[in-house]
Design a binder for these strands. Structure first.
Lengths: 137, 137
DNA sequence: CTGGATCCTGTGGGATACTG
DNA sequence: CAGTATCCCACAGGATCCAG
């Protein structure tokens, strides 16, 4: 099993729920996975999509995702270092989960995105309004 | 609406994904929600389903879930204290998310094989590495 | 450009004891 | 039975500087 980052699981029937959650927890895992669904991305490309993440964390999260077998890290031995990250087949199995998460978020966190076209959530918008952060209830 | 417990979100399109994750993070939220899908449960009933949780944590998680508007806490002014927890309509909207999480977990729990040969994922281990007690509902 | 090494803090979460 | 209050620590995660 994925190396237990937390403690051991509670093996109730909800075990699976918890197990899955542990894999995509960590403030960034989910978002990174989401962006990777679009396709291969380079280190800095991901970074630009997650303006608030530090390279330290990005590297760490990416490493964990890699260890969990979700992302593939491809290093190009070039003068200007180039590393690409892409989802593995296993990583893609998470798509329905990520999408379920996004769907719910779109419909409930009031983040907005065309209420009309709320059906097509498989086409990530390239931007987010400034007031994306829900300022409290 | 859940007030931001963590920091502010990253306004990427994956924003919604992160937002949703923040609501069900915390080592227990997901599992508690899952069990509550079965129906109303009393404090100790939940506790029995999560043998490793401490009342301190259970109370805390339940409180957050309550604040996020996912669970309803009903107190009965009886001699032997009795408190029931049930999902609110809003809480039920999370069902597809929880189920997506569980489904993935059911199909993948017990993994972690070479990221190299992660191409094949047609070997679902439908069990928990540890003893997965099926607390039949 | 990519990301390792260090240092430092906040807080999630565990143990235990007490109360109504 | 349900819940609160304390103490305490490990670790997720942030800031920076350094290096190939």
């Amino acid at each position: 099993m994925a190396r237990i980052r937390h403690k051991s699981l509670d093996c109730s029937p909800g075990c699976a729920v918890e197990a899955t959650l542990q894999l995509i927890d960590g403030k960034w895992k989910g978002v990174i996975l989401y962006h990777l669904l679009e396709g291969t991305l380079r280190f800095n490309e991901i970074r630009r999509r997650l303006p608030n993440i530090t390279q330290r964390m990005l590297t760490a999260q990416l490493r964990e995702l890699e260890q969990d077998g979700f992302v593939l890290r491809t290093v190009y031995a070039e003068v200007p270092p180039k590393v690409e990250y892409s989802l593995t087949a296993r990583g893609r199995t998470l798509e329905p989960v990520i999408m379920a998460l996004k769907k719910w978020g779109d419909e409930n966190t009031g983040f907005r995105r065309d209420p009309e076209s709320s059906a097509d959530l498989d086409e990530p918008a390239a931007d987010c309004p400034v007031s994306c952060v829900q300022a409290g209830g």
